[in-house]
Each structure stands twice: as C-alpha cells, then as structure tokens.
C-alpha cells in the first residue's frame, strides 16, 4: 500500500534532484566526484597532458632521441636550429640540443618527482605528529619549521653542496627535501588540528584504535588533498631549484645534461647562439607552468568545500 513520503524522504529526493541538475552523479565516492570535477577543469587537463608528454619524452629518450647526448662533434658546433637534422640546433661542443633536452628531462623530472615525493612524505609525517600530540612535541617541531623557513636557503644549499661530496641527483634531492618539507608540514598540521576534534576521531579512540592507526588510517587520508596539491607545485619548484644550483655550478656534473645546467652554460653564448638558452628555458617554463596548472586543478577538484 502506497504511503505518503516522510518529510525526510522528500528532502533527500529534492537533494538528489538538485545534484542531478548540477551534474553531480549520485552515490559517488569523494574521489569519483573529485575526478569528475578535475575533468571539467580545462587548464588542469592541458597541464596534466603536457606534464605527461614531457615525462614520456624523457623516459623514452634513449629510444626516441635522434643522436647521442654526449657525442662531441667539433666540426658541427653552433649549428642554428634546422629541420630535420638538428631541430633545436647544436651546442658549443657540437652536440644535438634536442637530444640533450630529452636526456636533461630525465634529470630535471626525477629531481622534481622525487623531491615532491620526499617532501610530501616527510612533511605529512612531521605535520601529523606535531598536530596529533600537541604540547611540547608540537612546539619543538613547529619552532624547527620556523627556523628552517626563516633561514635563506641558497647559502644553505651552497654549504650543503660543499659538504656532501659528489654531484649527483641524489645530493640535490636530499638538499631540497631536507629544507623543503616545512610547507607541507604546516599544511598538514593545520588540517589535522581541525580534524582531530571531529567525531570520527573520537569514535576511533572510543573503539580502542591505537594512536598510530588513528594518524595513519583516519587523519592523514583526510588531510591528503592539500598535500597532493603542494606536491605538484613542488615539482615545478624543485626543477627551478635545480636550475639555480646548476647556475651556481653546484648541480649536475658535465657531460650529463639537465635543463638547469644547459641554461647555465648557455648564458655565455646568449648573443652568439640564443637557442642554447631559449630551448631549455622554454622547457623549464613549460614544465613549471603545466605542473602549476595541474596543481590548481587538483586543488579545485579535491577541495570538499568548493561546490561543483
């Protein structure tokens, strides 16, 4: 027998209709909603695809690069960009710039990705521990963050680079991670401070969950959105950071190319062979821009407070 809908059912139905009208699928998880929102963000899609393309180009460099990246040819120095042999020209030692750009991407993107990953993990753990335990732990960690943030990083990079021998990617990533986790730590701490007083955390506690379990299973996943956004932005920053270290002669050792050291070496030939500066500059620019767009899109998509 048909009965009249209760006021609650009517309200739910209205809500569903409103959501359908707004284009939100009913019964979807947070991540599905975020994905749909992300797909609607045109700049983020462009940024994401560009980042993907650049990554593919770098990963596949050994197979698709037209020349060998360290093959010196002193008879073919300073060749201006020409199709099809040297699309981006040749450098001061006659090496193909396109090939070097592809290989350089491997270094620059690895620096970007690994730093972003390292910073996120380190920052999230410190931020979560700091917020969850509060008290002197919080004070100690946050003052450490304050100190690291207030110290100008470039001189620190120089000192670290002088102290840590070798000139590999590992050293650069280590330096960036050691000094870069602070922003993420603050983000996560803020997020968790607001989460930890909420009911589901209390419920977890009441059911006897351990502190580690509460941090790892309940708090961090809920604070993940800002971390992901910060990580994408870090990729761009790390690539720029590597280029400034290379600019100071502390980056990747020759003959291995990185976009940063290519740009650094090009400065001497700015008037003579401008393409040597323009090409790596353009790739750094494109990468940083696409990751920033991607980060923007992710922020919009993952922010639960933002309406569709």
């Amino acid at each position: 027998m048909a009965r009249e809908a209760t006021p609650r059912e009517i309200a739910l139905d209205l809500d569903r209709r409103r959501k359908e009208a707004a284009g939100v699928a009913v019964g979807q998880s947070y991540w599905q909603i975020a994905w749909r929102r992300f797909l609607k963000h045109r700049l983020a899609l462009i940024g994401g695809s560009a980042a993907l393309l650049l990554t593919l180009m770098s990963v596949l460099a050994p197979w698709i690069a037209p020349h060998t990246f360290d093959r010196i040819n002193l008879q073919e120095r300073w060749i201006a960009p020409q199709v099809p042999k040297n699309v981006f020209g040749t450098d001061e030692l006659g090496r193909d710039v396109l090939t070097r750009i592809m290989y350089a991407g491997r270094i620059s993107l690895v620096v970007g990705y690994v730093t972003a990953f390292g910073i996120s993990i380190a920052g999230a753990i410190v931020g979560a521990v700091s917020a969850f335990y509060g008290g002197w732990v919080d004070t100690l960690l946050m003052r450490l963050v304050d100190v690291l943030i207030s110290v100008p990083v470039l001189p620190l990079y120089l000192i670290m680079a002088a102290l840590i021998p070798g000139g590999g990617v590992g050293r650069i990533v280590l330096i960036f991670t050691v000094f870069g986790w602070t922003t993420v730590a603050r983000l996560v701490r803020g997020q968790i401070l607001s989460l930890k007083s909420q009911d589901f955390v209390e419920a977890g506690r009441a059911m006897g969950a351990s502190e580690t379990r509460i941090i790892l299973r309940h708090l961090i996943p809920n604070a993940l959105a800002p971390v992901i956004v910060a990580a994408t932005l870090t990729v761009g920053n790390a690539i720029l950071g590597e280029s400034s270290l290379s600019y100071l002669g502390l980056g990747i050792q020759p003959p291995t190319p990185s976009w940063g050291n290519m740009l650094q070496r090009a400065q001497e030939y700015l008037l003579k062979a401008s393409w040597l500066a323009v090409v790596p500059g353009l790739f750094i620019f494109m990468t940083v821009l696409s990751f920033n767009f991607l980060g923007d899109g992710l922020r919009d998509a993952l922010d639960p407070r933002l309406k569709t």
Binding site: I72, G166, G249, P255
Partner: peptide, 24 residues
C-alpha cells in the same frame, strides 16, 4: 668544462674512463 668533456671523450678512446667532478 668544455676542455674536460673533450678530454673525457679522447681518453675513453685509449681506455681511460674519466668522471668529472667540479666544485665551486
């Protein structure tokens, strides 16, 4: 640095591997 890279290639031809390690 250019000299180093040329020498690296030339010495490789006689069987010596050169690892460039520059500092400020």
């Amino acid at each position: 640095e250019q000299t180093q890279q040329i020498i690296k290639e030339q010495l490789k031809a006689v069987g010596i591997e050169i690892r460039i390690q520059n500092v400020p």
